[in-house]
Simulated assay, not measured.
Amino acid sequence: MFILSLTYRKSNEEADRHMEPHMAWVNEGYDSGMFLASGRKVPRTGGVILAKGDRTAIESFVAADPFTIHGVADYEIVELALTRTAEGLDGLKG
């Protein structure tokens, strides 16, 4: 599993200008089965996405995010080898 941590490099107003295409990109991640969960950081300084799959494919997909293309956010990609989950979340280990 991977944690994709986005940190805004530009203002929230600039992020809002690119939000619609970014959300279309997020939806593609869910449709492909790569994304498991996502949301905004509080306070709003970026976001977090939980993802699964091949690291190279994830890095390539992140490079296609409109936030990346337009310099709105930087991504940190952290791989996590889950050893334990709450009941009902065993699928995250795969």
Rank of each mutant, 00 (worst) to 15 (best):
M1H: 01
F2Y: 15
L4Y: 00
L4G: 07
L6V: 08
T7Q: 13
Y8M: 06
Y8S: 03
K10Y: 06
S11C: 05
S11V: 05
S11F: 05
N12Q: 08
E13I: 07
E13W: 01
E14K: 13
D16P: 00
D16E: 13
E20S: 13
E20R: 14
E20H: 13
P21A: 08
P21S: 06
H22F: 03
M23Q: 13
M23T: 04
A24K: 14
W25I: 10
N27W: 04
N27I: 02
E28S: 13
Y30K: 00
Y30P: 03
Y30F: 15
D31E: 12
S32T: 10
G33V: 02
F35Y: 12
L36I: 14
A37I: 02
A37F: 07
G39F: 03
V42L: 15
V42H: 14
R44H: 12
R44E: 13
G46T: 04
V48C: 11
I49L: 12
L50D: 01
L50V: 14
A51I: 07
K52L: 00
K52F: 01
G53I: 05
G53M: 07
T56P: 02
A57I: 10
E59H: 10
E59Q: 15
V62S: 06
A63V: 08
D65C: 00
D65W: 02
P66T: 06
F67Q: 09
T68E: 07
T68M: 09
T68Q: 11
H70E: 13
G71V: 09
V72N: 07
V72P: 04
A73S: 11
D74K: 13
D74F: 08
D74H: 10
I77L: 15
V78N: 04
L80S: 10
A81T: 14
L82G: 02
T83Y: 10
T83Q: 11
R84Y: 07
R84I: 10
R84M: 09
A86T: 09
A86E: 05
E87H: 12
L92A: 09
L92F: 08
